[in-house]
Computed example of a mutant assay.
Amino acid sequence: MEPTIEGAIALARSATGPLSPHLEAFINSLIEQQYSVISVRARSWHAAVSDAWLAEHGVGLTNVSDAHID
């Protein structure tokens, strides 16, 4: 299955963690900067995984630190 922009946007819309309100704007920013479809899809997947991890560990955006990113 080919990666698509629609798939990236659907992934963002299905997110429920603390990053979820920002994911669609993030994807639109990547599109506006003319990232390739595969790059948009990969970055949206990484953002969605990070969103899920933050939610699973009860970390809100204001509490994200360098330790979480590492």
Results as ranks from 00 to 15, higher is better:
V64W: 00
H46Q: 07
P18W: 05
V49W: 04
Y35H: 15
H46D: 09
R13F: 00
S50M: 09
L11R: 11
V49N: 05
E24K: 02
L61T: 07
E56H: 05
D51F: 08
D70M: 15
F26Q: 04
G60C: 05
P21Q: 10
S50Y: 00
S20C: 03
G58L: 12
V59M: 01
E2N: 14
P3Q: 13
E2R: 14
A48F: 00
M1Q: 15
R43T: 04
P18A: 08
E24N: 06
L11V: 02
H22W: 11
R43V: 01
P3K: 13
V64H: 02
V59S: 04
A48N: 02
W45S: 14
D66W: 03
L11G: 02
D66N: 08
L54G: 01
I31T: 08
I38E: 14
Q33A: 10
L30P: 12
A52F: 09
A8R: 06
A15G: 07
N63F: 05
Y35C: 11
A8V: 04
V64E: 02
D70S: 15
D70W: 13
A47L: 11
H22S: 12
S14P: 02
A55Q: 03
I38G: 05
L23R: 09
N28Q: 09
L11D: 11
H22V: 03
A42T: 15
N63E: 14
I5Y: 11
S20P: 01
A47F: 10
A10E: 15
A52E: 07
P21R: 12
A67I: 11
V59D: 02
I38S: 14
I27S: 02
I31S: 10
V49H: 01
L19G: 12
A10F: 01
R41Y: 09
R13V: 00
